[in-house]
Each structure stands twice: as C-alpha cells, then as structure tokens.
C-alpha cells in the first residue's frame, strides 16, 4: 500500500494545481514541467533503466511532431488520431534504429553517436523535402476546440499533458516491478551476464527503444499542438535531445521521479529568469552553474536529496 502513497499524492497535487493557481503564467509553467517530465522520462526508460544512452532522442520527438502535424495539415486527420499515429511512428523508428544498431553490436558511445546521426539526418531530410514544409516548417491553422486538440483554455492542455506524464510515470513504476524492467536493469549492469541467464538482450533492447520512441513521439505531438508551429531545427535539433537527457540527469537517471524533479528545476530556471529579467541567455548561465554543482555534489541527481531524507528518517 505504501508504495502507492507517493504517486497518488503527486497526482492529487497535480490535479489540484491549476484550480488553485489559475493565471496563464502558472498553468503554462505546469504544462512545461509536465511536458519536460514526459520527454525526460521517455529518454530515461531507455537511457536510465536499460542503460542505452541516446544522444539523439529528438529523432523520436520530431517524428511524432511531424507525423501528426502532416496528417492534420495535409490530410485533415484529427490530431487526437494523429497522436496515436505518432506514437506508432515513434515506436517504429525506435525499433528500427535499435535493431540496426544492436544487430551490429553498437554500444555505449557508439550507440549515442548513431542516435545523434539519425536525429541530424531526419532534421536535414525534413529541411530538404517539400511535404514537410522544408525549412519554413509547418503552421497548424488556428481552430480552437477541444475536439481539435486545440483547447480554448490552457487548462485543457494542462490536463492532457498531465495524463501523458501520469502514463510515463506509470510505465516507470511498472518497469521497477516487472520482469521486463528487471531484465533491462540486468542488461544495463552487465550484458554478458544477462545473456548467460537466458535474456534475449537484442529483443529486450529493441522493445525498450520502441516504447521510449512511442512516448517521446507522443510528447512531440503535444508540443506541435501546444505551440501550433514546428520546424526541423526546433523538433529534430540537438537542443531537444540535450534537454531530454539533462532533465533526466539533473533529476536522477534510472529513477522513477528523477525526470519530474529535473523538469521542475529546468522549467523553474528557464521561466523564472525570463519573468524576472530580460537578460538574454541568463538562464543558460544558470543551467551551466547548476549542472556543475549537481555533478559535483549529487552525481546521482537531485533525487538523492530526497533519498537522504528518507534514509535519515528510517535510521
């Protein structure tokens, strides 16, 4: 029972938040935290749980953003349906990249580089061809209605991304307790030993990359619908990949709540500096400083602060 206390309490707080803090700024803040938590968790289930460090998760994010947007803008397909198509496309791209890389035994930094290469290739391709809108990107025509995944009120977006965030945390909780998750941890810790104990490491790694890709792509669709504009640099750029792994690393890789904590801090710094000053790039300086402090004192991420408190209470 006690295992459910933390997620239930978090969910209750998250559900109540926009009812208490009703300003656009506050709700936008909540949306961004949850959005980064979703894509950070997508990275984390592959990079943290299974140890498959990707440096190009933007490839899934962009795939999702473009998939639903092209379906919507060019073919008139409802973005709610597009969300599912995006997740499927993300899973396919994830499985494809994984199958290709792992078939040839790529690991560690080589795998990171191949994911980066794929993200860059996708960015350049979308930039080059006609039906993606090329370098100009795609504008989603404004038609505010919930049925159109364009909520008239921000709070609709908030609850949508909350549902995705809850799903992402549910996936992480499930991985912590399931056979699949145990196998991923075994692969992360020692792949040869995992094989010796009967684990089909290739299949498990392809599965987690597909799941990670699907979740990340769903985040991409949300992004497109929230901002109503995407272009190759924004959704396939290395910045997005870095954001995802930063969120996860600052909070704590391989943990259930690490990405949520990281997303909160990152959004706080980003939105806080933007609200208080108009100094360009100040938030980047603060990010850099924070990163150094965290790497120096909390190499496992901010989640260690919480663990320390629990440990002390138990002792």
């Amino acid at each position: 029972m006690s295992a459910w206390r933390v997620p239930v309490a978090l969910l209750a707080v998250a559900l109540a938040y926009p009812l208490v803090f009703r300003t656009n700024f506050a709700i936008n803040f909540g949306v961004l935290v949850l959005f980064f938590a979703v894509i950070g968790q997508a990275w984390n289930i592959a990079g943290g749980f299974a140890g498959q460090l990707s440096f190009g998760h933007a490839v899934f994010f962009g795939t999702g953003a473009y998939c639903s947007t092209i379906l919507h803008v060019k073919l008139g397909i409802n973005p709610w349906l597009g969300l599912w198509a995006s997740a499927a496309a993300g899973a396919l791209v994830g499985a494809f990249i994984a199958a290709l890389s792992f078939r040839f035994g790529l690991k560690g930094s080589y795998f990171a580089l191949i994911t980066l290469a794929f993200a860059e290739a996708f960015r350049i391709l979308t930039n080059a061809v006609e039906f993606t809108g090329g370098g100009l990107g795609l504008l989603i025509p404004l038609k505010r209605s919930a049925a159109n995944f364009q909520f008239p009120e921000r709070i609709g977006f908030y609850y949508t991304i909350l549902a995705l965030a809850a799903l992402s945390i549910a996936i992480a909780l499930w991985l912590k307790r399931s056979r699949f998750g145990a196998r991923l941890a075994a692969i992360r810790e020692n792949e040869d030993a995992a094989r010796a104990l009967g684990i089909d490491t290739f299949r498990e790694k392809v599965k987690i990359m597909a799941l990670s890709g699907a979740l990340c792509a769903a985040g991409g669709t949300f992004y497109a619908q929230y901002f109503l504009y995407i272009d190759p640099v924004v959704v396939f750029g290395a910045d997005k990949s870095v954001e995802m792994l930063l969120v996860s690393m600052i909070g704590g890789t391989g943990t259930v709540y690490g990405p949520l904590i990281g997303a909160f801090l990152l959004t706080l710094v980003g939105e806080g500096t933007r609200a208080l000053t108009n100094a360009q790039g100040l938030s980047l300086i603060i990010y850099g400083g924070l990163l150094i402090v965290i790497i120096a004192f909390l190499p496992n991420g901010l989640i260690d602060l919480f663990k320390l408190r629990w440990g002390r209470r138990r002792a």
């Binding site: 941890a185 075994a186 810790e189 020692n190 040869d192 030993a193 010796a196 104990l197 009967g198």
Partner: peptide, 12 residues
C-alpha cells in the same frame, strides 16, 4: 547455464 571466471555481477 554457465558462470564466469571473472565474476560479472549486476553491480548496482
């Protein structure tokens, strides 16, 4: 099933 001469624990 085999074991390894140089032990290969899942360290963490």
């Amino acid at each position: 099933v085999r074991t390894f001469q140089i032990t290969q624990p899942f360290a963490q």
